[in-house]
Computed example of a mutant assay.
Amino acid sequence: MSSPNVDFLGRCAKSRPRFAKHVVGPAPTDPFDFQIWSMSGGHLLILEILANIYSQLDTIPPAEEQNFALFCLFGMQFIEHHHHLEETVIFPMMEPEFTTNVLAEHATFSGALHELDKYLKSVLAVKQGAKNGQVIPIVGQAKVPFSASTIKRYMETMIDPLFTHLEHELEWLAPENIRASGLSKARLDQINAKAEEHIQNEMDISLLVFGTRHVRPESYFPPLPWFLAKILVPWVFWWKDRKLWKFLPKSFVPIEP
């Protein structure tokens, strides 16, 4: 796999304001406005996760390679869960009134994403657990050496098609487009409830910590209950994979207009 000529962090800087502008206020109560708010928040999280991982790849000491590989795997699993949710819940439930080419666009970057997920699991010698963010050691399997350059190549391969797709989704989900499709408020409420159910059932608590600690200070997404955000995440869920949290962002790159 050759490495494309990509300014990875520059590509993040280009998309960051496009995602951030929709989540600088609280969650809308109107479900037609909520779709772009929620999707933008998820996209901004994906961007900050990728930027954070990429910016640290050349700084990881050998003693921390296994921990950082798991941290990277959390990032890929967060992104995979986001797109799995779109393919199995959000966009199918909007049909037939509201249609997109989401599957075709996912195919433009999913190969590199899945190969990176597979590579990180081989570095850790683990297999997938029941939920995203859970892995099971494979007894007797040799670990593949950690390679920052290999991770970079996969990330650089997927960054442009991924962000191009994320930008397209926000265009699709403009409130006026959803209203024009004829989708009802009741259906949108059902979609939101089903998406929340899937997140609760398919995402490990460590992935919740991982995701929420990549939230920019300007962002109101995700709309977590106070007790979950202020008590459970920082004081209970935090401890399970605390060896990884040294890699969380200490600060965020300013958003350029």
Rank of each mutant, 00 (worst) to 15 (best):
Phe146Arg: 06
Tyr220Pro: 00
Leu47Gln: 12
Ala63Ser: 14
Lys118Pro: 00
Leu208Lys: 15
Ala130Met: 05
Ser184Leu: 05
Leu9Asp: 02
Leu208Gly: 04
Gly211Asp: 06
Pro92Phe: 09
Phe109Tyr: 15
Asp7Phe: 02
Ser40Leu: 08
Trp245Ser: 00
Trp238Thr: 00
Phe68Ser: 03
Ala104Gln: 14
Thr99Ser: 12
Leu232Asp: 09
Ile199Asp: 09
Ala104Met: 13
Phe146His: 12
Ile53Asp: 04
Ala51Lys: 10
Lys240Trp: 10
Ser40Tyr: 11
Glu197Asp: 08
Lys131Trp: 06
Asn132Cys: 10
Gln200Phe: 10
Gly75Ile: 12
Gln66Ser: 14
Val24Ile: 14
Glu105Phe: 06
Ile191Pro: 09
Gln56Thr: 01
Phe237Asp: 10
Met93Tyr: 12
Glu169Tyr: 03
Ser110Glu: 12
Arg16Thr: 06
Phe221Gly: 10
Leu44Ile: 08
Asn192Lys: 12
Pro17Trp: 07
Val6His: 02
Asn5Tyr: 01
Leu124Tyr: 09
Thr29His: 09
Trp239Met: 00
His198Phe: 12
Arg213Gln: 14
Glu86Phe: 07
Asp33Lys: 15
Glu97Cys: 08
Thr157Tyr: 04
Gln66Asn: 07
Cys72Thr: 11
Leu173Trp: 05
Thr29Pro: 00
Pro223Met: 12
Leu207Ser: 13
Leu73Ile: 10
Asp7Gly: 00
Leu45Tyr: 02
Ala148Lys: 01
Leu244Thr: 05
Lys118Val: 06
Val123Arg: 10
Gln200Trp: 06
Leu207Arg: 07
Leu248Gln: 13
Ser149Asp: 11
Val6Asp: 01
Asp160Met: 09
Phe227Cys: 00
Glu256His: 07
Gly41Thr: 12
Thr100Tyr: 09
Arg213Thr: 13
Cys72Tyr: 03
His198Glu: 08
Leu124Ser: 12
Pro26Gly: 10
Phe32His: 12
Glu48Asn: 15
Lys152Ala: 06
Asn52Phe: 03
Pro26Cys: 03
Leu44Val: 01
Ala195Arg: 13
Asp160His: 03
His165Leu: 05
Leu47Ile: 01
Phe163Tyr: 08
His43Tyr: 07
Leu50Arg: 04
Gly182Arg: 05
Arg216Gly: 05
His106Ala: 03
Asp241Asn: 12
Ile191Leu: 11
Leu9Gly: 02
Val24Ser: 10
Ala195Cys: 03
Asp241Thr: 01
Ala27Met: 14
Gly211Leu: 11
Pro61Val: 04
Phe32Thr: 08
Arg242Leu: 02
Leu44Glu: 15
Phe237Lys: 02
Leu244Asn: 11
Ile159Met: 03
Asp117Gln: 14
Gly10Lys: 06
His198Val: 04
Ser219Trp: 08
Lys246Met: 02
Ser3Trp: 00
Asp33Arg: 12
